[in-house]
Design a protein around this nucleic acid. Structure first.
Lengths: 216, 216
DNA sequence: TCGTTGACTGACGCGACAGTCAGTCTTATG
DNA sequence: CATAAGACTGACTGTCGCGTCAGTCAACGA
């Protein structure tokens, strides 16, 4: 058996252990020992694979950002109204759900960006990438005549930033389904400021059964 | 000279020193020595006035929350459209401004709420209080006929959460004038989903000269 | 069979930091 | 003047967590 595979497996396991430790202890109280305990290996092994704690966490950040960015940018959906709904839905966190933990881990890392330039660069690229994803959806919708001729970049940033704000609210203050409320708020207001008549007509189709955004 | 005054003065100075130290070092790296250095007194004195580091920080949180909440809830302005504009304006952070530091300090404390129940309770009350302030403005505007008959609580939470999201974005990722962009976004969309014709008419008056929200 | 290489560990050093304690200085009071 | 009380400090203690180093163990190749 090649040793290269073992290395990859071990590093993969360290990344997974980092995730679990991060969710459990939070960034501020996260120790190398916590990660080691989660991985079942010794703390020294972490230093064998990653020189410093910072190196390990940067590697973890890269991994997480890549995974999320890919998921957001990839979609089978065609219709811009559907794609926007899909994107917005992605940010709903169900209280008591495990996705709460993932969102928490991201947010903890976000705060480190204030004092860590490398973190900030990586996270800024991630943020702007996601804004671009929304902007593209909107630009497509304008071209298709279902969205009004708004500024795609500005509108995309507004929507994405509002969504992230709701996640922060829900996670930090355990504010129940705050992300779901933001989804409803954005959707409802979008019908006034973003959708054309053709866009709103899409909401009458089979793609939007009664249970979806049911409060409207 | 009474010693009671000295105590008050000293504690006041400690609070101010805490603010400065928090801005400079961030919450995660904040030590009692940092605060002591800022105050010009010895580290031991902090323990004399506040038993533990946590006690000191909770006292600081109370102080800051009270100050901000009061500023947001108090206003001389009468017209609901003006009050909403005033409220939203309060959240604009000018890059390179010192208000950046205050916002940073709040945000750092926000993150602690995840793992500290006392912090969470205090900050939740603060957050909900501010949402209520917006909701009242909106309810007043509906009654005055300048806002559409939306749900004040839901709309207030949506607006406030979006504003905080923009602050988080600007502060953590040094995203230039992200709060100003969010202000524009909210104001522009509000003209479609929130304002009645009477509300939009208000924007034609002297209260909204060309330089305010100039991009619209 | 022997040497090399990679994965992994236990024990140690070292610095940082919260909290304690004994004691000083100043001011007020009888 | 003596005593007490409050404000304040320096030195000490104990803990915790990162990073290092010497060494073990297993697999592989000559």
């Amino acid at each position: 058996m090649g040793t290269g595979d073992n290395t990859t497996d071990t590093q993969e396991e360290i990344m997974r252990a980092t995730y679990r430790a991060l969710c459990e202890h939070g960034f501020a109280n996260l120790t190398m020992q916590d990660i080691a305990d989660e991985s079942g290996k010794s703390r020294t092994l972490l230093h064998y694979h990653y020189d410093t704690k910072n190196d390990l966490l940067e590697a973890y950040l890269d991994r997480m950002i890549g995974w999320i960015g890919d998921r957001l940018a990839t979609s089978e959906t065609e219709h811009p109204v559907d794609r926007l709904a899909e994107f917005i839905d992605f940010f709903v966190i169900h209280p008591e759900d495990e996705s709460q933990s993932l969102a928490l881990a991201i947010l903890e890392l976000r705060l480190q960006a204030i004092h860590n330039e490398t973190f900030r660069e990586k996270l800024t690229a991630h943020y702007e990438g996601n804004v671009d994803t929304v902007a593209e959806i909107i630009a497509d919708g304008i071209e298709a005549g279902v969205f009004r001729p708004v500024d795609p970049a500005a509108t995309g940033e507004g929507i994405y930033t509002a969504l992230i704000g709701a996640r922060t609210y829900q996670i930090t203050l355990k504010a129940g389904p705050a992300t779901e409320r933001m989804t409803r708020f954005l959707w409802q207001t979008a019908q006034h400021f973003l959708f054309t008549d053709a866009g709103n007509a899409r909401l009458e189709t089979d793609a939007y059964p009664a249970e979806r955004f049911s409060s409207f």
